[in-house]
Nucleic acid binder design. Structure first.
Lengths: 176, 176
DNA sequence: CGCCTGGCTATGAGATTGCATAGCCAGACC
DNA sequence: GGTCTGGCTATGCAATCTCATAGCCAGGCG
């Protein structure tokens, strides 16, 4: 991985709290969170199913699900079976579905290196039945490896404000 | 996501401890672990650089690095600068490099949903400068979404033995 | 109208993670 | 051979995560 432009000298800057990976880990960084997410991807929507299939306690499931709903990863919507009272189910939002690459990447890696013969489950293309892989990919469609990548600053990005902007009395010192 | 064959009835089986994602999370599931991994992907190899660039304490860095070496993700190799004593650097093994998809997937998701305008850094193709994406992909090269995937049992896989097999005295109840 | 049940919440204990601070030690340098 | 320094370790405390257990409550049912 190469750093280009102003990033080239790594002693001159630090990513600090602005790292997207760090922010992502704050939301989905616990074991229960990822496993819950796996289940959601598998199609699970109901509280009890989450608890049973993930193998966590109800308290933990409730906490994580609530947190996911607050984060916008899951949508909590009422449902009702005939003769039963109204309950809620948890379905993936767009934001949640877009975590699929992360979930699959972990699974792919675990299958390859942490299991005797590739793990108990295989993910396949529903149409063809062929294998599914997940790798970084360039615009042209070519697979890229670590050495093929470069990092450039994103000029559109602005550091998040964490205090109310002060009335300016000189050049602002917004996280240089 | 659809389950095929014997997996179709989800009330009949549980993945339990055999989940590759769970095993992966046991190794790289903490915040410091992922951030350390990010730095390793960025090309960092030395103890002090890890500590400074990730923003964790030396104790935590030492613990995680040791754990990574034990897991086979990093290789600890001696190096020596002229006039300095021998030290060790930590470089990604094949196993470690193959975590790149997981790291990039998290970054991609964080950039998209947790940042004001796409996060501070952009990953690009070193050759073309074009954007890099990471998505599940079928054999044909087609991008696949959640609904395009299916899960089938992996017949090659055998559950890891954790106890000596008992002499059978009836139908075994190994994780129904 | 009171009981029962499925779905969720509350509480407390133990393990893990992380920070801050201080300490150790191999070996380069004098 | 003593001292200094960069690289790593040890200790103590706070926060978080998870489990186990118990409790609550809406509303269907008798």
């Amino acid at each position: 991985m190469t750093f280009l432009g102003p990033l080239a000298d790594r002693s001159k800057w630090q990513i600090g709290d602005n790292c997207s990976i760090g922010k992502a880990m704050d939301v989905i960084g616990s074991r229960s969170a990822i496993l819950l997410l796996r289940e959601a991807c598998y199609g699970t929507t109901r509280f009890d199913d989450f608890v049973e299939r993930v193998g966590i306690t109800e308290a933990v499931a409730a906490a994580r699900l609530k947190q996911f709903v607050a984060a916008g990863i899951l949508d909590r919507r009422p449902y009702r079976e005939p003769g039963k009272r109204t309950r809620h189910e948890y379905v993936l939002t767009r934001m949640g579905r877009d975590l699929l690459p992360a979930v699959l990447a972990l699974m792919q890696w675990g299958d390859a290196y942490l299991q005797p013969n590739g793990g108990p489950l295989r993910v396949v293309d529903r149409e063809s039945g062929g294998p599914v892989t997940i790798r970084p990919r360039g615009e042209s469609g070519k697979d890229l490896d670590l050495d093929d990548l470069a990092i450039v600053p994103n000029d559109a990005w602005t550091p998040p404000r964490r205090t109310i902007p002060q009335p300016l009395e000189g050049p602002s010192d917004t996280t240089p």
